[in-house]
Amino acid sequence: MSKHPELSQDEDYPEDSDFYVLRLYVTGASINSLRAIVNIKEICDKYIPDSYSLEIIDVYQQKSIAEQEQIIALPLLIKRLPLPEKRLIGDMSDTLKVLNGLGIAI
């Protein structure tokens, strides 16, 4: 699995309130990280296909980011948009909680 930002094609985020801007912070190729990446992709593709952007950042590569972003627990998913900003931690295996955290109604 790539350690670099994967789906960052949308540099200018649309104002559309239905568009999700997500950033996933992981630590290298740890089991939790790999699982989180697979899980979040699956959830997004299933519930909000084509209306999201997901950026995956390896904190090991940019250590100073941990302090800037107040990162403690990993993996961490930050939902930048739509507001309010929301933080989700864990391997995203609890789909209901992920959906709830992202504010997606099933």
Binding site: T27, K63, E67, A73, L74, L76, D94, K97
Partner: peptide, 26 residues
Amino acid sequence: VHLERSEIEETGEYDLDGLFIRLGHA
């Protein structure tokens, strides 16, 4: 370190690597 339970949703297994990285970096 700012940690607020209400802002965080726990969605499964996690670890505190973020803290380790942060502290290690400092």
